[in-house]
Nucleic acid binder design. Structure first.
Lengths: 120, 120
DNA sequence: TCCATATTTCAATAATCGCTGAACTATAGA
DNA sequence: TCTATAGTTCAGCGATTATTGAAATATGGA
C-alpha cells in the first residue's frame, strides 16, 4: 500500500459517522449488510449514508454487490490488513516496541479464532 | 484505545501534510527533530507547520520537548502501537485473515531488529 | 538591556466537507 | 405496463478546516 492510498483510508475513517458504519460492517463479517439495514441501525438518512458508503468504498475499505433490490455492503478485510501493515512497516519501520505490541495482539486474535476455514 | 481517540488519530493522519510530517518524525526515531528542521525538510511555512504539529500532538501521535531555543518533536510510538492494535482488535476482532497478515508483518519487523537491549 | 533566533498565536480568507430535500435509476411483483 | 421499494445522485447551504501575514512569546548571547 502506498502513502496516497493510506491517506485516503485515514480520511475515510476520520469521521465519526463513517467510522461507525465501517465498524458495523466489520462486525457484520463477509456477509455484509444492506444499505437500508445500515441506515436503520445508525439512524441516518439514506442519502447521507449513501455518501458515507461511497467514500468508504472509494477508499477500498468496503465492497458492494447487488442482491435483488438491495445493495449489500461488506468490509474489505484485505485493505484493512494492508492499512495495518502499512502503519506497522512503512510508518513505523524498525521500531521493535511497536512491532512487539502488535505481534502480541495478533497472537491473541489468532489464538481465540484459530480455525481459518469456517467460523463466525 | 477508545473509538474517539482513534477517530482523532485518523483525522490527524488524514491530511497529506500531516502524514508527511508524521512519517518524517517516525523515521527520525526517538531523538526527534526540531520544528525548524521539519519545516525546512517539508518546505512549509513555520506557522503552517506549527498548526500541523499541534494537531498531531493533540492526537497523541507526537511529543515535544524544548531544547535551548528549539522545540524538538518526536513520534509517540506507544500511541501508534495502540492505534494499530485498535484497528486489529476493536475494528477487526475475530478476522483471522487480518490477524495473520499482521502477525507475519510483525514477525518480519522483529526479526530484522531484534536487539532492543531489554526484550519488552 | 538589546538583539537575533526559534517557534507559536491570532485574525482573516479560501477551500473543503457534511447534511438535506428533491429528483433520478434499478429491481420486483401485480 | 404500472406501482412500490431500495438506493443513488445532484445542487445548495452552513460549518469546519488549512493556509497566510503579522504580531507575540521564549531563549541565548553580546
Amino acid at each position: 500500500m502506498d502513502s496516497t492510498t493510506a491517506l485516503t483510508a485515514f480520511a475515510a475513517l476520520s469521521q465519526e459517522g463513517r467510522l461507525e458504519v465501517f465498524r458495523l460492517l466489520v462486525k457484520a463479517g463477509p456477509d455484509g449488510l444492506a444499505a437500508g439495514k445500515i441506515a436503520e441501525q445508525v439512524g441516518r438518512a439514506p442519502n447521507t449514508l449513501s455518501a458515507q458508503l461511497n467514500l468508504l468504498q472509494q477508499a477500498g475499505l468496503i465492497d458492494s454487490r447487488r442482491e435483488g433490490r438491495s445493495i449489500i455492503y461488506s468490509a474489505c478485510f484485505d485493505q484493512i490488513s494492508d492499512l495495518i501493515v502499512y502503519l506497522l512497516e512503512d510508518c513505523c519501520a524498525g521500531e521493535p516496541c511497536v512491532a512487539s505490541s502488535v505481534q502480541a495482539a495478533a497472537d491473541r486474535a489468532l489464538c481465540c479464532a484459530p480455525t481459518t476455514s469456517t467460523s463466525s
